[in-house]
Design a protein around this nucleic acid. Sequence first.
DNA 1: CAACAAAATTTCCTATAGGAAACTTAATTA
DNA 2: TAATTAAGTTTCCTATAGGAAATTTTGTTG
Lengths: 207, 207
Amino acid sequence: MSVEQPDMPELKIESGSGAETNVEPLKLGQRLREIRKNMQLTLEEASQKTGLARSTLSKIENEQISPTFTAVQKLAHGLNIDIPQLFAAPKNAMASGRRVLTRAGEGTSHPTSTYEHELLCTELANKRMIPFKTRVRARSFDDFTDWVRHEGEEFLLVLEGEVALYTEFYEPIALQEGDSMYYDANMGHGLISLSNQDALVLWVVAR
Amino acid sequence: MSVEQPDMPELKIESGSGAETNVEPLKLGQRLREIRKNMQLTLEEASQKTGLARSTLSKIENEQISPTFTAVQKLAHGLNIDIPQLFAAPKNAMASGRRVLTRAGEGTSHPTSTYEHELLCTELANKRMIPFKTRVRARSFDDFTDWVRHEGEEFLLVLEGEVALYTEFYEPIALQEGDSMYYDANMGHGLISLSNQDALVLWVVAR
DNA sequence: CAACAAAATTTCCTATAGGAAACTTAATTA
DNA sequence: TAATTAAGTTTCCTATAGGAAATTTTGTTG
């Protein structure tokens, strides 16, 4: 086992589809206003995008009327948001208006037998992506006891050296510096270095 | 460039963010009827559970009216289904068990006045992350007419050269090769090269 | 702080959603 | 097949959503 996995910052588990019992308050108007503000749109602009009248939008946001389903559709479509998102409780989102820096080599080190991970930008919680640079020490697929496999998607860019990406369902593939791959992380995967040097790759995981 | 891939249903190419103009169909009525039938409820029973009139339910199911949002809430609550499920636009997830390769320099080029983007791994649709390498041509912040700003989060790694990241709310910050940043993309941002060469960066966006 | 501009709200009217009851259709039984 | 009943639909009316324009509020500039 243990092809090690970089320990991901704490992730909240998705609330199961628990049977709700009471009518959610769900302030559609409020949420809509937030969304519009974030997009920096005036009512007029939102009106043009959605095809709904300024006045109507205003009333919806102020909870003076309950929009019809067709109105909601126009809203969602015009503002390019999907409907569930409109009704979903605000995500456990990363703090907005934030940025964080990690200087070269200053990430959080996380060594294992096959890889040496350097986690980047860890000071920021609740990120949608987990970026890390990895020094690939493994030289043979046998160095792994089993596939690494986890929820989400993974992007890979070779920074230095030459590697082979092993995945289930496919043949191993050789990658040179500058090559990149994107794959479903539920599919077993693992990297080895093909040269006698360790290789260096960038990995970004989205859960 | 493209690699071996086992025979699998062909993949949709990433849909450009073309502004759609007309409203999706989404037959709410039909879906509602299915759900009610599955629960083996008559209109009368559904009416009692939801507090909506028999006639109203009938009209909704037959798509003669477009229910208000409050009506939808009553429906969802009374029948114990959550709203997203009602709208269940088919998940739109990336095809599972897939991987895709982009060789160095083989991405899809996308030049602008200030940047030259090379989109990576575009053959795979519906990804959670959009990775691209960017050649930074801008030399001064004045080259930009306005902040770039969009939903989501952004990860940045400097591959070559030296850049300055400008963001709202913060001072510009100089980044050397190997430095990385992570930030809220709703916050205005822009990159310039600090040397007299173009700089090269990797960008990954999660919407 | 006056004067103007831009954004948001309110008004007023028309179109349409929602409910009660009448009506129609489907299913069951004598 | 008529009678009965239970399901679904339609009608008709009232309440309310949606749009155009007037009004108010908020923000800028001289």
